[in-house]
Nucleic acid binder design. Structure first.
Lengths: 190, 190
DNA sequence: CTTTAAAACAAGCGCTTGTTTGTTTTTATC
DNA sequence: GATAAAAACAAACAAGCGCTTGTTTTAAAG
């Protein structure tokens, strides 16, 4: 455990539990017990349980956005952007597997304005992917006909990775990304 | 509402609520209220709350399995099987959108033996997809090199559909399936 | 040592959870 | 219209929920 302070430790523990049992399936006492303190003591560090969920998902969202933004804005071909974007996405999942799981699986448990904030960031992220594909179509590299489905296909892969990716799989994030990109670009028919 | 009996009505209502708010996020009183009865009255029809979740996910699992089984066993090319399998999968999602959502999103809330039962059926389903791909490799239609990733790609698309598919989208399940298959087989590069 | 602030405890608040029990109402059958 | 089964009610149970409050312990700084 790094010396990031008690609050970060609590966040990490909550993140782990949320990813394992879900937000509603995790109690404040589950978290406090995993922290080695009593339930009430948690409230010296947090305001509400939902604060934990929001901070986890919000950081997750920012990680994905900050990872993709420079790629979208860079001046390379759309094909290269696609490759780099898939790499970046998988790297974020790899580096924050539990947070990514909470981000993709539990964000709908947020309420009110916080729900909308995360929803906006998700839309923003999807929009960046759409931009890459649209650019590829404009460049004539990608076929337009199925643009919508290409986007869905890519996001399906990206959004499902947290379900199966395990750090002890042997392949690096780059290798995984490159194989996916190869498949997506050229298909898997001989 | 059809005359399927009160229990089926309760299952349908629970299914809708579970898909909207999650299993742990839905209370017995939520369900009973949506049924127009008191919480205690539910227990004339069910034994436990988890019974509802199990019955929903188990039926969902069976729907996917029964839909895919005849395709895997049929005597057509692997390419045709793939096409039919994607069609079948999307049709099941289309015909049971809420149940499919619960199946994919909430099944981990099951406990003990029931968790394992659903896990087995999921493994079985994935195994059928693997069989189709392996067959395609054997026939020389698909490239082996990335078989694992092809399987992951297909299952990612299949397992993520419930997140975005809406019945009022304009396209039929067949049309959606055919476009995905075309993309997966040949990629989206010019 | 003393001071001070952070961290944890101890106890419990009001409320909700899933579920049970005994009784009453509804519905269908003869 | 009596009988019986099915369905709902009414009331509550023990347990657990998120969270608050007042006090004590811990630990670092002078």
């Amino acid at each position: 455990m790094p010396k990031k302070g008690r609050r970060e430790e609590i966040l990490a523990i909550a993140c782990r539990l949320f990813s394992q049992k879900g937000y509603h399936g995790t109690t404040i006492r589950d978290i406090s017990e995993a922290c080695g303190i009593l339930a009430g003591s948690l409230y010296a560090h947090i305001n509400t349980k939902e604060d934990l969920l929001f901070e986890i998902t919000n950081r997750g969202a920012d990680a994905f956005l900050q990872s993709l933004a420079p790629i979208v804005e860079s001046r390379v071909t759309a094909k290269q952007k696609l490759k780099q974007a898939v790499r970046a996405h998988i790297q974020v999942v790899e580096a924050n597997l539990e947070a990514a799981t909470v981000f993709f699986h539990e964000w709908k448990a947020l309420t009110g304005e916080r729900f909308e904030q995360i929803q906006e960031k998700r839309d923003q992220y999807e929009g960046m992917w759409s931009a890459i594909l649209a650019e590829g179509v404009q460049e004539g590299i990608f076929q337009l006909q199925d643009e919508k489905f290409a986007r869905l296909l890519i996001l399906s892969v990206g959004n499902w990775i947290y379900q199966w990716y395990r750090p002890d799989g042997g392949l690096s994030a780059e290798e995984i990304a490159d194989r996916f990109v190869a498949l997506m670009l050229h298909g898997f028919v001989r």
